[in-house]
Nucleic acid binder design. Structure first.
Length: 147
DNA sequence: GCCAACGTTGGC
DNA sequence: GCCAACGTTGGC
């Protein structure tokens, strides 16, 4: 899951009272659909975009499966969607909790240099803010930084 | 700031 | 349903 740290950062996440947050603001159908597939206890990489270097900061886990994103109904929110309704919500979110942090972030250049990740969605020009990671890719990345 | 990629909108 | 215009994302 990607985020711009200027909007919501890994540090913000760690500072949450229960180190848990809801992932609001996803307004892309493909990204939403990937979130809908997530199950409790699924692990997630937390990625910072729009910074130098872009990097995976650590691991979170899903603690609540997809439910309607309340910001779509809030007229004062940037995420307000006039075409959505509570009866038929268009956008969903999941809750995630902090799990653990990489001792040093795993940067995008490092990922690009790592064999076995060539087909990773993140490395193939995807702007998707929620992306799938295969088990093989996951294991390779975890192995770059032992817990 | 630039620009490529790509999703969305809306006229026809 | 097509497709041009436009907006957004995100690496560099």
């Amino acid at each position: 899951m990607k985020t711009e740290p200027g909007t919501y950062s890994w540090d913000d996440f760690k500072k949450e009272d229960d180190q848990t947050t809801y992932w609001d603001g996803i307004r892309n159908y493909q990204a939403r659909n990937f979130m809908k597939e997530m199950k409790v206890d699924d692990r997630v990489f937390f990625y910072h975009s729009q910074v130098v270097p872009p990097a995976i900061m650590g691991v979170a886990k899903v603690v609540r499966e997809a439910y309607p994103d309340h910001t779509q109904f809030d007229q004062s929110s940037n995420y307000f969607d006039p075409k959505s309704s509570p009866e038929n919500p268009r956008w969903h979110m999941v809750d995630i909790s902090y799990e653990w942090e990489f001792k040093t972030p795993v940067t995008l250049p490092e990922l690009r240099q790592t064999p076995g990740l060539e087909n990773m969605v993140l490395l193939n020009n995807s702007r998707l803010s929620v992306q799938p990671v295969t088990e093989a890719e996951w294991n390779i990345i975890i192995a770059l930084r032992k817990k």
